[in-house]
């Protein structure tokens, strides 16, 4: 995997087939978590047949019911957080007004990412103007993984890095019999770290591209 770098007005990263497949899979999962339709052509058969008006209405009804209550899943709550910690009226009003738009925004960004990752070849090209919306979609993926990994504090995040270092070391020294952490947690944690690294490279690209575009050739900000 190579992080995003500037290339002819775009940000380009390089991922091998397996990396693309894994990230596309988590993108699709988070899309479903947000109530989006299955991405791509391989929609499950039961959904294929049922995309008629009645289903559409049922989906909206379900959306309406969900919109009036806080999501049960902590990962979804992290994607669509409460707009007030104490005032229920403010939180409910905000959710009623914005949740549907926020869901749509997030699902559409994920769909775009999924389509880019489903193209052939190792390059993942993001147009300069889409860098921050892609970085935001990467944030959403990391929020969901972070929730599943129970990263609730800065200390939790640091502990995860330590756990992964320990597990990597144990694997390298063939000492995995005494692996101190759950392998699935290590796998998710490594995926989380890879997405963090990709996002950081994309943000650095956006900062560089923004400086160039906003300030003109003079670089007047300095």
């Amino acid at each position: 995997m190579k992080g995003f770098t500037a290339r002819e007005g775009s940000a380009v990263a390089e991922l091998d087939d397996e990396e693309r497949m894994v990230i596309a899979r988590i993108v699709a999962d988070v899309g479903l978590l947000l109530g989006g339709e299955q991405f791509g052509m391989d929609a499950p058969v039961d959904r294929d047949a049922g995309l008629d008006d009645a289903d559409e209405i049922l989906r909206h009804l379900r959306g309406l019911a969900e919109a009036l209550a806080e999501p049960d899943d902590p990962a979804v709550l992290r994607l669509l957080p409460s707009a007030s910690r104490e005032d229920r009226e403010i939180a409910d009003e905000f959710r009623r007004l914005t949740e549907s738009d926020l869901r749509d925004l997030k699902v559409e960004r994920l769909r775009t990412m999924w389509e880019q990752l489903s193209e052939d070849g190792p390059e993942w090209e993001v147009a300069s103007g889409d860098a921050m919306s892609t970085a935001a979609a990467l944030t959403d993926l990391r929020l969901v993984l972070g929730s599943r990994l129970r990263l609730d504090s800065d200390e939790d995040a640091e502990r995860l890095h330590t756990e992964i270092d320990l597990a990597t070391h144990a694997l390298e020294t063939d000492d995995d019999e005494t692996l101190p952490v759950d392998p699935e947690r290590v796998w998710l944690g490594m995926l989380y770290q890879a997405l963090t690294w990709l996002q950081e490279s994309l943000v650095q690209y956006a900062i560089g591209a923004g400086d160039g575009a906003d300030d003109g050739p003079e670089g007047a900000d300095v």
């Binding site: 992290r78 994607l79 669509l80 957080p81 409460s82 707009a83 007030s84 910690r85 005032d87 403010i90 905000f94 914005t98 926020l102 925004l105 997030k106 921050m132 935001a136 944030t139 959403d140 990391r142 929020l143």
Partner: peptide, 11 residues
């Protein structure tokens, strides 16, 4: 802010 994945509240 929620669109960007930051947790924001108003009061």
């Amino acid at each position: 802010m929620h669109g960007y994945g930051l947790w924001a509240t108003l009061q």
